[in-house]
């Protein structure tokens, strides 16, 4: 944005100030995310920069906290790093277990949320859908209702899910199924929002064109509709995965010791013994989120190109 030539000196000064303010706000947004990256290589168990780090002395940096992600929880962490050691780390290390759990739970809840959410979004974007507004409001509400309320409700419900119909059956607390269902519910609003947004620019006459050329409804769906909405579906799925991958409150309420996830492990780490190992995990997660952001951005552009929407 350039100032017009007729701007007065006062306006020029204000414009400079405005740019400085904006820069400060961007710094506020981004610096907390970047600060953890150098600190995760700290040789000392502190959360602040040492003299060696500030003078860029190599002795001030180390990979020890990344190493501890593999060794913490292993019965015999010291030993030659052969195939046997790696398989032990894979089977025993606390953080590795947490990562496995997070990925398993994230994967299944994403599948569930994406499948059900896409189906529903297809129905919701039909003009004939009855009670559209009310149904939409209900389906989006898991995003709005405070997580503590959802977790409290699930805690009661999961302790005896069949009590609704007056029966007694097992419990869903401390089960993978329970957490996957809870996380799918939390991810569904994101799938609905992204897929309906993609469908809103969808040209309905394409379906009629397919039908007029003799394609069956299912063939039209798979050959015409699905390829066009895939970018929206994938970015909705990524949102759902991130939601599950980052969710800690429901896990704290309804998971058992078996379902230790990365956020739960971080939560415990932050509340109890805080060590730079947390920062090493944080750095890895920041890199993952950069990759996800890039993917979603590419998908968005692809979707706009496919639908013929020119970016503003």
């Amino acid at each position: 944005m350039a100032l017009p030539v007729y701007a007065s000196p006062l306006e020029r000064l204000w414009h400079r100030t405005y740019l400085v303010i904006c820069a400060a706000i961007f710094l506020f947004l981004i610096s907390p995310i970047l600060i953890v990256i150098p600190l995760s290589f700290n040789v000392e168990p502190y959360f602040s920069f040492t003299k060696e780090m500030l003078s860029l002395d190599p002795s001030g940096f180390s990979m020890r906290w990344y190493d501890s992600l593999l060794t913490v929880g292993m019965t015999t962490p010291d030993g030659p790093r052969d195939a046997n050691w790696w398989s032990m780390a894979w089977a025993e290390a606390t953080w590795v277990q947490a990562a496995k759990n997070s990925i398993i739970i994230g994967f299944w809840s994403t599948i569930l949320a994406t499948f059900l959410g896409t189906l529903a979004a297809l129905g919701l974007s039909r003009p004939e859908m009855p009670w559209r507004r009310a149904v939409m409001a209900v389906l989006i509400s898991p995003m709005i209702v405070p997580i503590i309320i959802i977790a409290t409700g699930l805690f009661f419900f999961y302790s005896n899910p069949c009590s609704v119909v007056g029966l007694s059956c097992g419990r869903l607390t401390s089960t993978y199924t329970g957490i996957v269902m809870a996380h799918a519910t939390l991810g569904i609003p994101f799938v609905i929002i992204t897929v309906t947004a993609t469908l809103s620019g969808f040209d309905q006459s394409l379906i009629r064109a397919g039908a007029s050329l003799g394609a069956s409804p299912s063939r039209t769906f798979f050959k015409v509709v699905l390829p066009l909405i895939t970018p929206g579906v994938v970015s909705g799925a990524l949102f759902a995965f991130v939601t599950s991958f980052d969710e800690v409150v429901a896990v704290l309420f309804i998971a058992g010791p078996e379902q230790q996830t990365i956020p739960r492990q971080m939560w415990n780490g932050i509340r109890e013994a805080i060590s730079p190992a947390i920062l090493a995990v944080a750095t890895i997660l920041v890199i993952i989120s950069i990759a996800l952001l890039a993917t979603v951005e590419l998908l968005r552009r692809r979707s706009e190109r496919l639908r013929g929407v020119t970016p503003a």
Binding site: F26, L29, I30, S31, P32, I33, I35, V36, L39, F47, S48, V242, F245, D246, V248, P263, M266, W267, I270, I274, I278, L279, A282, L285, V286, S289, I290, L292, L293, V296, E297
Partner: peptide, 21 residues
């Protein structure tokens, strides 16, 4: 990107970073 990166970053990571700061 500077706005969206925090949006995509884990809430626990952001809270930890602020504790560091």
């Amino acid at each position: 990107i500077l706005v969206l990166l925090p949006f995509w970053t884990s809430l626990l990571v952001r809270t930890t970073s602020w504790m560091v700061l």
